[in-house]
């Protein structure tokens, strides 16, 4: 399972830990706002070769049912996946505002 955004994002004086040691993989914010373009998988073309999954710096691509799917909460729209996909199954599209 991927790390996920927690419900609790703010910490009161009492809740701030005594020391600098806290739960690993605790996420409070997404990265989707960084994107100006977004990768879109063409499921008809995707063969599930996993090259995009392998090379994604943010680890936001997974293979489900033999096809790549993207966690848009954390995709920054860098476009590496579209470039690495030799069969052209990923297109970068303008982020809808």
């Amino acid at each position: 399972m991927r790390p996920y955004v927690r419900e609790k994002t703010g910490f009161t004086f009492e809740e701030v830990p005594e020391n600098t040691c806290f739960e690993a993989g605790y996420l409070t914010t997404v990265n989707s706002g960084w994107r100006s373009i977004r990768p879109v998988i063409n499921a008809a073309k995707c063969v599930g070769c996993e090259q995009c999954y392998l090379y994604c710096p943010d680890g936001v691509i997974a293979i489900q049912g033999g096809k790549a799917v993207i966690d848009y909460d954390f995709c920054k729209g860098c476009g590496i996946c579209a470039k690495i996909c030799k069969i052209g199954a990923i297109e970068m599209e303008a982020e809808r505002k």
Partner: peptide, 23 residues
């Protein structure tokens, strides 16, 4: 379609949600 390299490593993500620049 099997990817031997992908299959040789964990499916878990251990570095996720970070604020590194895109790419």
């Amino acid at each position: 379609m099997a990817n031997k390299v992908a299959d040789s490593i964990s499916r878990e993500e251990y570095f996720y949600g970070h604020k590194a620049c895109a790419g």
